[in-house]
């Protein structure tokens, strides 16, 4: 398949918005345990604004769509998630240039650039108990699958499984970044809400590509 064009990327974001809406309470209660009980509400508000924006001002190409998404998230989410997810999409936008359809390698490279931007913004490392603990393994799985000659749908499916494992692996971690870090050892034993919403983002990409095939 050709990859993701502006419709495919829009489908990804709409699926993600629906998934965040569905998991809003779960995200908030995970955040209540080790943070401040607003991750579900903030992500829901942000993704609803992204979907509204796509309908109101349909972007012309992938770069415009990704940039618009990043700006809307930065404007509407606040907290830590706004700048982090916003930076991810803004960096993806810069990475895709003027392409009208993102092939598997381009999409994977853009996603990696986005995650690298997020890591720089958050000054985070693997094992800090953040969304990077889901996204990092997902990127590696995506690259490995594509390297093995798998199509994008299968590679994103593998990435989604890796993100889920990464998310689950945050449970025993002691948080070193964000509000959960204030709890010290007490943050262990709780799944990270950011890693949870990040795993949903990768799952939504897999579903968007599968549905488009």
């Amino acid at each position: 398949m050709a990859g993701l064009d502006v419709d495919g990327l829009g489908r990804w974001l709409r699926i993600y918005a629906a998934s965040v809406a569905e998991h809003q309470e779960e995200l908030t209660s995970l955040d209540a345990a080790i943070g401040d009980a607003d991750h579900g509400a903030n992500m829901h508000r942000g993704m609803a604004a992204v979907v509204d924006g796509l309908a109101a001002t349909p972007p012309a190409d992938p770069a415009a769509l990704l940039k618009q998404t990043g700006m809307v998230l930065i404007r509407s989410v606040g907290g830590t998630s706004g700048p982090l997810y916003g930076t991810l999409f803004l960096r993806m936008a810069s990475a895709v240039g003027g392409e009208t359809a993102l092939g598997p390698e381009t999409f994977a490279k853009a996603l990696r650039a986005g995650v690298e931007g997020l890591v720089a913004r958050g000054k985070t490392e693997l094992g800090d108990k953040t969304l990077y603990d889901a996204l990092g393994p997902a990127l590696d799985a995506l690259d490995a699958s594509l390297g093995d000659g798998e199509p994008l749908a299968a590679a994103l499916h593998a990435a989604s499984r890796a993100a889920d494992s990464g998310r689950d692996a945050t449970t025993p971690m002691v948080a070193r970044k964000g509000r959960a870090s204030y709890l010290g050892e007490r943050s262990a034993g709780h799944q990270d809400p950011g890693a949870t919403s990040a795993a949903l983002l990768v799952a939504a990409a897999a579903q968007a590509v599968a549905e488009g095939a």
Binding site: D36, A37, D38, A41, N42, I74, S76, G78, G79, G82
Partner: peptide, 11 residues
């Protein structure tokens, strides 16, 4: 002013 317990945004 941000949302409850949430930082305001850069704009």
């Amino acid at each position: 002013a941000g949302e409850v317990f949430t930082s305001p945004v850069p704009d």
